[in-house]
């Protein structure tokens, strides 16, 4: 998808609108299928789902060029898919198969697809932040016009390495976009025990010297428009930026279940966010705008389900790596 700067709504561009809706619905269905199949005990690794957070991944993925770079976190499925990462290779990785994107070494938290510039997601909070900045440094030094996108959560900005990396990016005016999905929690810890009231994350980033913007992370339109504008400025050499989007994870921090009953957040809070389901909101918008009919959306869903069930079959049918392979690639 070519990056376009839109003043108004993506609904005015049917090709783009279709791509955004398709990607959101695809991510949703992949994640729902992982959740449904996880209890079979075949995906044997810690797995963090992005259900509820599809809009940011789809929009950012559509804004970025294929040769732009991205790094991610423990919760990376959506970012990887949004950037264009291979679904088959991702599922095979989660199943621990030799056909996985990391040959089974990394699992759900270590996704990579170099064909589309997805340079890796890592499992230690904050770990990939400076790596994304380093990718931007290389792009600047080599004179490419690539942008590096660093996906972070609201928890990751509490790590010192965020400030160190952001500061350097500002000093050197690096082509990096920090993309923060604020889903209000770090595991079961609400923002209130981690960050002071009345101080926004984007405000903090601005104080470090980053250009910032923020918005509704469940409105794919808004995320697309704001991100496209910001990436355009970064690509033009105006220096790094920080985008904060408000969103919400529907299921438990790690694993396939709902956990609103265990006490760290309320069912009412979850239901309020569910009312603002990013996929449903955009579907309704496009139907209202006449871009899609209900029937057209059903056709899209069938296409998605076919791709996803094919990818699960590929993952399940692929062999495990031989145990001896564990000893390869320690050094080059």
């Amino acid at each position: 998808m070519r990056a376009t700067t839109l003043e108004t709504s993506t609904a005015l561009e049917p090709v783009l609108a279709r791509a955004l809706l398709f990607q959101m619905k695809r991510i949703r269905f992949v994640e729902e299928e992982i959740a449904r199949r996880y209890p079979e005990g075949l995906m044997r690794c810690p797995t963090h789902l992005s259900i509820g957070q599809e809009a940011v991944a789809a929009a950012v993925g559509a804004v970025l060029r294929r040769d732009d770079l991205a790094v991610g976190t423990h919760r990376a499925h959506a970012h990887y898919l949004g950037k264009g990462g291979s679904l088959r290779a991702m599922l095979a990785e989660i199943y621990g198969k030799v056909t996985g994107c990391s040959r089974g070494r990394g699992g759900s938290m270590h996704l990579i697809d170099l064909d589309v510039g997805f340079e890796g997601s890592t499992a230690i909070v904050g770990n990939s932040i400076p790596i994304g900045v380093g990718l931007a440094l290389a792009a600047q030094l080599r004179g490419t016009d690539q942008v590096s996108c660093v996906f972070v959560g609201d928890g990751a900005i509490e790590e010192g390495v965020f400030y160190e990396a952001a500061n350097f990016a500002v000093v050197r005016r690096l082509p990096v976009v920090f993309l923060c999905e604020n889903n209000l929690y770090s595991v079961y810890s609400p923002l209130s025990v981690r960050q002071p009231p009345g101080r926004s994350i984007h405000g903090l980033a601005a104080a470090v010297g980053l250009a910032t913007d923020h918005g509704d992370g469940n409105d794919v339109d808004e995320v697309y428009v704001k991100t496209a504008a910001a990436v355009g400025r970064v690509r033009a050499g105006e220096g790094p930026c920080f985008l904060e989007y408000a969103t919400y994870r529907w299921r438990e921090h790690c694993g396939p279940n709902y956990d609103n009953d265990i006490g760290y957040r309320t069912e009412a809070e979850y239901l309020a966010w569910r009312e603002r389901d990013p996929v449903m909101l955009y579907e309704r918008k496009l139907v209202a705008a006449g871009v899609f009919t209900e029937a057209g959306i059903d056709v899209m869903q069938v296409e998605i389900e076919q791709e996803v069930s094919d990818a699960f079959r590929f993952a399940e049918d692929s062999p495990f790596p031989e145990p001896a392979e564990a000893f390869e690639h320690v050094y080059c």
């Binding site: 044997r44 690794c45 621990g96 198969k97 030799v98 996985g100 990391s102 089974g104 070494r105 990394g106 699992g107 270590h110 062999p319 495990f320 790596p321 031989e322 145990p323 392979e325 564990a326 000893f327 320690v330």
Partner: peptide, 16 residues
């Protein structure tokens, strides 16, 4: 343990 990072896959950790 052998001098390698611990891999994730169920297949790779067999006998590790």
């Amino acid at each position: 343990m052998p001098d390698i990072p611990e891999p994730t896959s169920f297949g790779l950790t067999r006998g590790l």
